[in-house]
């Protein structure tokens, strides 16, 4: 019980800092998910009828995910310096695979006879894509976007090591000062806020899925 009270005291004495740090993480999540989403979805669409290009892009995206995060965050420092930029690049590269994978799966899983009949009725290629294939693939694609967003919340904690800010700052400073007063509280702040943020994003994206999934395929 004491722990929770102490943690609450710790939190309420530095709302400004907590708010600013949380905002940094949210900015990572939004910018990374949106930009990786655009790249992955466009790639998935462009390669949908080209099996070789499709496999290649998936293979490349998978390679990024196998690079240890500590390395990926630091690798770009010589090029872009410290702070937001190297963190953004690393998170962006990580977020591509889940979205690309699900875009490819989603587009591929549309019943071929549905596409055949669409084409047979005289829908143009772009009409088939926009009116039939994408709406039917969308729930699977959105699931990929959700995974990417949650992944970004978790991994963005590493950004603190390259001076990128975010909730990782609390965890790092707490770890550095253990077992001094307020060190555990700092760690808890980073962890619990990350969890709360992830939970909120999950709920929001599920709601978005509800609203944007066409009736009939729900």
């Amino acid at each position: 019980m004491d722990g929770i009270v102490n943690w609450w005291d710790y939190l309420s004495s530095r709302w400004d800092l907590v708010g600013a740090t949380l905002m940094e993480t949210i900015i990572y999540v939004v910018t990374v998910t949106v930009s990786a989403g655009v790249l992955a979805i466009v790639t998935g669409i462009l390669t949908r009828n080209r099996p070789f290009a499709k496999e290649m892009s998936l293979a490349i995206a998978s390679v990024f995910l196998t690079i240890p995060s500590l390395a990926l965050f630091t690798i770009f420092i010589p090029l872009v310096g410290l702070g937001f930029a190297p963190s953004f690049i690393a998170l962006f590269l990580y977020a591509i695979l889940p979205i690309l994978r699900n875009t490819v799966t989603g587009l591929d899983s549309v019943d071929p006879s549905v596409l055949e009949s669409a084409r047979g009725m005289g829908l143009t290629k772009s009409q088939v894509l926009l009116q039939v294939q994408l709406p039917l693939a969308w729930p699977v694609m959105l699931a990929g976007i959700r995974v990417a967003a949650l992944l970004t919340v978790g991994i963005s904690a590493i950004a603190t090591l390259v001076a990128g800010g975010g909730l990782g700052d609390f965890i790092k400073s707490g770890l550095a000062r253990l077992p001094l007063p307020n060190s555990l509280e700092a760690i808890w702040t980073g962890v619990i806020l990350s969890l709360a943020l992830a939970f909120t994003i999950d709920v929001l994206l599920r709601l978005l899925g509800r609203v944007t999934t066409p009736a009939g395929v729900r």
């Binding site: 006879s113 055949e116 009949s117 005289g122 143009t124 395929v217």
Partner: peptide, 23 residues
């Protein structure tokens, strides 16, 4: 233009291929 041609011919296939997301 093949699309224009197809709009002038009905096309029914074995699996039907109704659009599941449309009424």
């Amino acid at each position: 233009d093949p699309n224009e041609l197809r709009r002038r011919m009905g096309y029914v296939i074995q699996q039907i291929g109704l659009f599941p997301h449309r009424t």
